[in-house]
Every structure is written in C-alpha cells, then in structure tokens.
C-alpha cells in the first residue's frame, strides 16, 4: 500500500544528540516523535527529509514539571493522551486538556505528541493530496510548485494551521522553549507561528520545540471548542480557545484564539481588550464574539464550505464564553 520514501533514521538518546544531529544535517533533517503527521505526509511525498531524528527516547522531552510560581512545564514529547489524561491539566488548564482530547483518534493521540501537534504541518486542499494528484495539477508553491491555487495571484501560501493544541496553549498564555545545538531561547508561543503557509514556524534551522511553559493558572478559567464534520478523526473546520481571568464575575484579562482560520492561530485581540473590565453577561459575550469574529477570515481551502466556516466563528465564541460563564 502506501510506502515511505527512503530516509535514514537516528533514534536520539539525549537532547544533545538530537540537536547535534539536526544541527549538522541541515534542512534535509526532520525531528520526529509520534510521526502521525510527518509519516503520512512523507507517504504522499509532501515532505521528503533524508534524515529523521527520533525524539521518543529523549528523556528531557518527556518531562511534566511544576515550576516556581505555580507554572507548569510540559515536555514536547508528552503524548496527546498523556496531556488529555492529566488530572491537573483538566482542572487548571482545561482548554489545553480539551484540545488534546479533540485531536484525531485515541490511537493517534497515543503516538502523537504535544510538540508534534504544535508543529503540525499547515493544510490545504491543494497540498494535502497524494503526489499524483498534485502532479496532475502542476503542484503548488508549498511543495514543488510556484503558484498558490487558492489565490493564484498571491505571493504567499495560504495553507491553514489546523492544530488543536496551539490555540488552546496560546489562550493560556504559554511560552515555548526552543533548543538548538547552539543554545536555548524562550518566546511567547504565539510568536512561534508566522502568517505564512510554508514558513509557518519561526524555528531557526536545527532548532526544535523542547516544551511549553504554562503560567500559573490562578484565577483563570478556560475552554476549547472544536467544530468538525464527525465526532472524531477530523481536523478542525474551526476552533476557538478562550481563557479569562475572572474576579467575581468581572473579566480581568482575556484571550480568545481561533484555530483553522489562517496560516497561524489567530488571536482576537480587539475582543479580548473589550472584555477587560467587563462583567461577563449575555450582552458582553455577544459583543465580544462580534468583535472576535472579525479576526476570523478563513479562505476556501480546507474542509468545510467557506460560508459555513465564516458564519460559525461568532457563535462558537459565544458558546465558549457562555461555557466559562456557566463555570
């Protein structure tokens, strides 16, 4: 059936070994953990790395640690099942827990990792196809071609960020820790994502996601809603993560993040700013959702009719905020 192209494989035993291998091989190398995104893409020749560096046996990437000040560190190679099943996360960081639980299927969550989902390849109807299909069309700019079939005059690729965990973690204010052979850095998770379907991550060559850091959850309430065609398996047609810091019914701080509406998770900043200082009521929710929906401007390039995808953004934000209101 669908076979993989040729590649070399290195099962790294330590972070250092992995980083050195990735640093020396250059752009032909790819890190792989669960492989649930990369391997099918390789079968369809969407990606053809020459060296795969396996991360599953790297102990540094499996950690789950509470840090000073009540923040929480999550290693990139924790599986999505581990994230979804973690009781502390369910209580304090509900959005991320719900998002992890909404990814694909149980078997894929058992293999797939947090880091893998955060780095999920962007998706597009013209790209997520087997090689013959893409060849017949003449390929697209994301792989082997020069044109964007979604917007043929566009200088950029519009492939869509479809991961579940990123909007949730961004809403929770996550920072991401990046590591390479030359050192480490920590940035806001939202800054990991670029608004470009091809270069959708700000990772430097040889750099990988080591883990994320969630700030203290004190006072925050969050949730995640995913719209998809079936009750399981499918990527989001639209998703909304919302996190609010509440003080007796009044919103102190808010973050609302859309998934699957563009090449990166999209923050609804105007809506978040509006909610600051507001009491959470049916009216304020409605207004926040109206403002938020302005940030969701999907293109017609993934599953789900465009009109449907556009129209549900506002309502999905309402649902998410109502859920928080209900507690």
């Amino acid at each position: 059936m669908m076979r993989l192209p040729k590649f070399r494989y290195l099962g790294a035993k330590s972070l250092k070994e992995a980083l050195q291998a990735l640093g020396s091989v250059g752009p032909e190398g790819r890190a792989v953990a669960g492989g649930t995104d990369l391997l099918p893409n390789m079968k369809r020749r969407q990606q053809q790395p020459k060296l795969l560096v396996g991360l599953r046996q790297v102990p540094e990437l499996q950690s789950l640690s509470g840090e000073s000040g009540g923040s929480l560190g999550l290693g990139a190679c924790l599986t999505l099942s581990e994230i979804a099943g973690n009781a502390a996360l369910q209580d304090d960081y509900a959005a991320l827990s719900l998002a992890a639980r909404a990814v694909a299927t149980p078997a894929l969550r058992n293999m797939g990792t947090l880091g893998g989902n955060l780095c999920l390849d962007t998706r597009c109807n013209y790209y997520c196809q087997d090689q013959e299909w893409r060849e017949a069309l003449g390929y697209c700019m994301k792989k082997d071609g020069s044109i964007c079939w979604v917007a043929p005059s566009s200088p950029r690729c519009w492939a869509v960020s479809s991961c579940d965990t990123a909007p949730a973690a961004i809403a929770l204010g996550a920072r991401v820790r990046l590591a390479s052979a030359s050192g480490r850095r920590e940035i806001d998770l939202s800054d990991l994502y670029l608004d470009d379907g091809i270069r959708y991550l700000s990772l430097e060559p040889g750099e990988l996601v080591e883990g994320i850091l969630l700030p203290p959850a004190q006072g925050w309430v969050s949730t995640y809603r995913k719209i998809r065609r079936r009750g399981s398996i499918d990527f989001p047609i639209l998703s909304v993560a919302a996190a609010l810091k509440l003080d007796g019914g009044v919103v102190e701080k808010a973050r609302i993040v859309f998934g699957a509406v563009g090449s990166r998770p999209k923050q609804a900043k105007e809506a978040a700013a509006f909610l600051g200082g507001e009491r959470l009521t049916a009216e304020s929710i409605e207004e926040a959702a109206r403002l938020a929906a302005k940030a969701a401007r999907p293109l017609d390039n993934t599953d789900g009719g465009l009109s449907w995808r556009k129209r549900i953004a506002q309502a999905t934000v309402v649902r998410a905020l109502e859920e928080i209101l209900r507690g």
Binding site: R230, G231, S232
Partner: peptide, 27 residues
C-alpha cells in the same frame, strides 16, 4: 448527512478516508 463522493470533470476529488467520510462510533 455526510457521505458524498465529489466529482469534478470526471475526477473524484475526495479519494481518501480523510475526506471521503463514513460515520464513526461517535456519529
């Protein structure tokens, strides 16, 4: 509700289980 093979100019457009859907246990 969800099953439809899409054809365009004689080509079947959704020829994978990812996009040619059948119900799961949750549907």
């Amino acid at each position: 509700t969800m099953e439809e093979v899409l054809q365009k100019n004689g080509w079947i457009e959704n020829h994978r289980m990812t996009n040619c859907l059948i119900p799961t246990a949750l549907d």
